[in-house]
Design a protein around this nucleic acid. Structure first.
Lengths: 218, 218, 218, 218
DNA sequence: GATGAATGAGAATTCATTCAT
DNA sequence: AATGAATGAATTCTCATTCAT
């Protein structure tokens, strides 16, 4: 948890700090990220970081939570009217999630790192919490989908969640490959990635079609 | 690439070295892995590593390639008669792949790390090559499957490969969750993980069913 | 020396500050004591300490002097009628000193630290002054004791002072060992240490007997 | 415990390292001692210290043990024929101990620091072991002394040990005061302290006389 | 008088790599 | 070919003190 000192910071300074930290943790995983590089980028003293946070881990936790919340909020906000069925819901979430990722490559990279962080005792809790949140979200959709009859009732629900979760997370890899993107480059450049929404939509349509055939009744 | 020095080593010594290195890179990702711990475990001088390999990265490359080849060979060898159709082929590959992972948790962990290694300039090439190999393998199956009529002819082949690849990779997470395994613990214990083949088969059946519904024609 | 700012403080606030500082310097020696922990405990700003005192050293000096004076005053006050001879006087002082220590473990710990503070240039003066005060007090008793004939007239007075001083200071170690006390724990608990006065008296009787045999004439 | 690396060092280099470390820990207590200053003094890389020892604490432990052993050995070696009675034994030990201290002020200062080290969890074990060794040594003398009839049979043995231990330790303070010495200065100057043996003997005679009167029968 | 954010030197420790033996 | 001591830059973190508000 950030210390009050951090919360009392002038908004601009706080923003610049978060920016630099986000950059660092987007470019490197937890262990490789360097507090020194962050302070150099912001132009503050090393000690200041420890006035703001309890330490590197605390800062990391804050950023992961922040990025996750921001992304979830973005997805929720973009939901134009409730989608009528399970697959539309998943498509919508994946679509807006991907749009967010391309618009905010640093958040996306950070979350990607956090998801696959090698499970050291230190970072385990952060990764687990992140994964648990996504799973819980999907589990809700799956349960409702089965109740509504959108999904075969005999499905192994845990496995279904896994199947969908992986596809959505992996979408990132597929899209970067297909369109020749690189999140790393985008982070370095400090810009979002260009994506034509129709192309993204087309890819998603195909993916959702596979899932629909695979999981829907009949 | 290993230096000649390494290849001229007495087989036993070479084996012990590979063993220890495998252990280290199974327990830690590239950056966290320690050359010092390896030489301590083998009981050789630190300098020797640099007589055998060009450096940590070179050693890492060698191990990832070795593990990938070993796993592929195991899967190929276990193929009892050619499976008749695409989905049986995938099932067979996934089944034997999983059995390999549970039997050789160090290889499995190493490959998992390599797959999700944060893409620093250093390790990027290794990860890419690993992923490319798996994709190429699956691509062959998919192309043949479409030709044979096992898969819908209008499928986006790249995406199909991605979908299947992700599911197979995700299997690991799902199984460890479901059965309460931990690859880390298995590596520490120096033992394989117990898995009843019927249970693995049941999970795979369900997963393959989803893929079949999703990807097969009509 | 405290600045006027400190002396003008509302008594309650001043008391709370002294309390917290006492705690800190009782739990840690000079170098390890932390200004930050003190202000956290009191709930004031870090800068305030520097409005009250010239710095950490100045605060330390103030506390040591305060604790020493308090202890001396306690011993003086507890003197019920003048003890008739040298050894009774020493016994009385040691007895009431020990009682003070057990009742005020923070003062006791602070003084203990100050006594054995590694003699850096910084703290040398504080430690010296503390020791000098005790020595001067004992020197008075010794001089009078020799004049009165309680002590052998040919004693080296300085050495006699040293002998007695050490015994009394070390009494703390002996008592904590014998009774399983810990001043650190008492400070943490914020409570005094339990001691039955008869037990303390018995120990002192034995110690004084040794001194009497050792130092008295004939 | 020193690592083999340290023990394999060329004697001269090892000596220079121990010298510098001894200096540092003689001038500062454990916490204030700086690994950086040591390596600067020796002219080696910081990392080397960690090739030699497990860390600062390990180095400290080694030095304290070394100094204690050296001092004990010196005292034992100097014992010219077994002293006939308890008080002669104590006198002899104190005499040679003091001579050692004045000749090796760095050892003496280090041991003094270790004896009064503020009891943090880290250094507690080192201090305790040091004190325990001295007490055990004295306890042996006391037990034998009582058996031999040199000491009053009804003495509290623990307390007797304490009394004597304190006097011997305090001797250092007394002598420095009386002769205007400073161990710190001697360490800085890199020289031993001058002491005339007759003077030391005279002081000890007086101290032992007090102890004899205090503790001997009749 | 009080605040508390900023400082920055200094602390211990790690570790891949080199190179003289 | 093997050794293993030496390196030194990089790491995270601490903390007394200052000073603008």
């Amino acid at each position: 948890m950030p210390k009050p000192t951090f919360l009392n910071l002038p908004p601009d300074k706080r923003r610049r700090f978060v920016d630099a930290a986000l950059n660092e943790f987007a470019l490197h995983d937890y262990r490789a990220a360097s507090v020194g590089r962050i302070v150099d980028a912001v132009g503050i003293a090393k000690g200041s970081v420890y006035q703001y946070f309890d330490g590197k881990l605390d800062l990391y936790r804050y950023l992961v939570d922040l990025a996750a919340e921001t992304k979830f909020r973005h997805i929720d906000a973009a939901r134009a009217g409730d989608a009528p069925d399970f697959f539309s819901q998943v498509r919508q979430a994946a679509f807006h999630g991907a749009r967010f990722d391309f618009g905010e490559p640093r958040h996306a990279s950070l979350l990607y790192h956090a998801t696959y962080e090698p499970s050291t005792p230190e970072t385990l809790e952060v990764s687990s919490r992140l994964r648990a949140a996504s799973h819980a979200y999907l589990r809700g959709l799956v349960d409702a989908g089965i109740a509504r009859g959108d999904l075969r009732p005999d499905l192994d629900r845990d496995m279904t969640v896994y199947v969908i979760y992986q596809q959505i997370v992996a979408l990132r890899d597929f899209l970067t490959d297909r369109f020749g993107f690189s999140f790393q480059d985008a982070v370095h450049a400090g810009a979002g990635l260009p994506i034509r929404e129709e192309e993204l939509g087309a890819v998603l349509d195909e993916l959702i079609a596979v899932l629909r055939h695979g999981l829907a009744p009949g």
